[in-house]
Design a binder for these strands. Structure first.
Length: 430
RNA sequence: GGAGAGGUCGCAUAGUGGUCUAGUGCGCCGCACUCGAAAUGCGGUGUGGGGCAACUCACCGAGGGUUCGAAUCCCUCCCUCUCCGCCA
């Protein structure tokens, strides 16, 4: 959501930003006309309300003075006003709903520093780290390794739930748990994040707050109780402070949480879905920052670095991609993606996405801070990033650390969590 | 799930149909006193919207309703607490 005043007064700037994202700027004109209509109606309505309030007040005074007859005359006067108010109220509500719908549909503007581009082919690689692994034998894809080792069961997952719901077994399950523990511990112990373990079902208001609704309803699993399964921990963690005014002394607030994530992936079927690449349920560690506007871009760099740190610790080569205006999506102002290399599929896999939303989410979720005691509340800037999305990290670990006999070495930092240096069939303790 | 009690301006409380333009205390801000601080005194202090402005509208958990007029009465829902039931 954008500042209404900004759209009214700096219309060209807004239009230009939306066009940079490759989105039709006609929505700006739709906003302006809906906004004008709404304001016109409100003005009329409030004039009538003021008049009615005036009369009601005088009735109270007349009654107190015992002038019953005059009070009755005044009562009659309000009849017409009341009808007009009722009608204007209905009009105002309708106008407001229309305005609100447009407003919620409007994209965020890209930051000036974001490279222009039409789509993902014009994203810019900012840096790369690590050496791409080489093999003296023919390496296997992660789904073959996992199947041979008996650590991920795709067919039985499909039987009990459907495709995209793998079952992790034995050391495979432990590896998943090890990754979760390692990743969340790393961020809380080294990078100053407070750990959050959030609810997995959230209400509609929360999803509107972070921007999944109303536009992307078809991406979500909905329960029978008007609650939705979270597509990311971003939703519950960001909404922790919905409708609150934060103390500036607490900022920046850095939170990180593990959750399972649930996505219908409607329309994504068949695209890069082999193995663990795209699932309906997966695990992720999410970082969320609440900052002042002055520091949010520095914090985006910090957060991206925090995600890079764990890839380094896991010994996985990666690259940092700056997303161009055409690929950034509606919510973000600026975004970096982190990708690790799959040495078998020979392609980069996105394992993290770090974004600054500026005040786009805080306006929707009404999350503010007071710059100083007694000052007017301002919207915070909100950032989030993954550290990391588990399944693709899991896949690249299997592929990168595989050995000729089909076993997989455990990355050093995970050994304490795994209790073993090697994943092989004979090693399974179960 | 059942019964009962509650949800009021950052916090705590008062307020059961018309000076409620929501009172009071704490907190916070400003001023005075002070070498400085504490204490004390005085003043100020909710949020959002519309309007160039004067000003005005809305908000007492949410949404409806009754009324000229609702924090206050009625209905529905949400949440919290106590007890009971069920349960990992």
């Amino acid at each position: 959501m954008l500042d209404r005043d900004l759209i009214r007064k700096q219309t060209d700037l807004v239009r230009k930003g939306i066009l940079r994202k490759g989105i039709d700027a006609a929505i700006v004109d739709a906003f302006l006309s809906a906004d004008a209509e709404w304001r016109k109606t409100v003005l009329e309505l409030e004039a009538k309300q003021a008049a009615a309030n005036q009369i009601s007040k005088s009735i109270g005074q007349l009654m107190a003075q015992g002038k019953k007859d005059e009070a009755e005359i005044a009562k009659a006067e309000t009849k017409e006003l009341k009808e007009a108010i009722a009608q204007l109220e209905a009009e105002a509500r309708k106008a407001e709903e229309q305005l609100r719908a447009i407003e919620l549909d409007m994209p965020n503007l890209p930051h000036d520093s974001v490279p222009d581009g039409a789509n993902e082919t014009e994203n810019v690689t900012r840096r790369t780290w690590g050496d791409i692994p080489t093999f003296t034998f023919a390496p296997k894809p992660h789904w073959e390794l996992a199947e041979n080792l008996g650590i991920v069961d795709f067919p039985r997952g499909a039987k009990i739930s459907g495709s995209g719901f793998p079952v992790y077994v034995g050391l495979g399950a432990r590896l998943q748990r090890a990754l979760i523990s390692f990743l969340i511990n790393f961020q809380t112990e080294n990078n100053g994040y407070q750990e959050i373990y959030p609810p997995y079902l959230v209400n509609r208001a929360s999803l509107i707050g972070t921007g999944q609704l109303p536009k992307f309803e078809e991406d979500l699993y909905k329960s029978t109780d008007d609650l939705y399964l979270i597509p990311t921990a971003e939703v519950p963690i960001t909404n922790l402070y919905r409708d609150e005014i934060l103390d500036v002394k607490e900022l920046p607030i850095n939170l990180a949480g593990y959750s399972a994530c649930f996505r219908r992936e409607a329309g994504a079927a068949g695209k890069d879905t082999r193995g663990l690449q795209r699932l309906h349920q997966f695990d992720k560690i999410e970082m969320v920052k609440f900052t002042t506007p002055e520091t949010s871009y520095q914090e985006l760099e910090n957060m991206t670095q925090n995600a890079e740190d764990v890839l380094k610790a896991l010994g996985l080569p990666y690259r940092v991609i700056e997303i161009c205006t055409g690929d950034i999506g509606p919510k973000g102002s600026k975004q970096y993606d982190l990708e690790t290399w799959s040495p078998v599929m020979e392609k980069w896999l996105e394992v993290s996405s770090c974004s600054n939303f500026e005040a786009y989410q805080s306006r929707r979720a009404n999350i503010r801070y007071r710059p100083e005691p007694g000052a007017k509340p301002e919207f915070v800037h909100i950032l989030n990033g993954s550290a990391l999305g588990m399944p693709r990290v899991y896949a690249t670990i299997l592929e990168s650390y595989q050995q000729e006999d089909g076993s997989v070495r455990v990355p050093e930092v995970l050994i304490p969590y795994m209790g073993t240096e090697l994943i092989s069939k004979t090693q399974d303790p179960s």
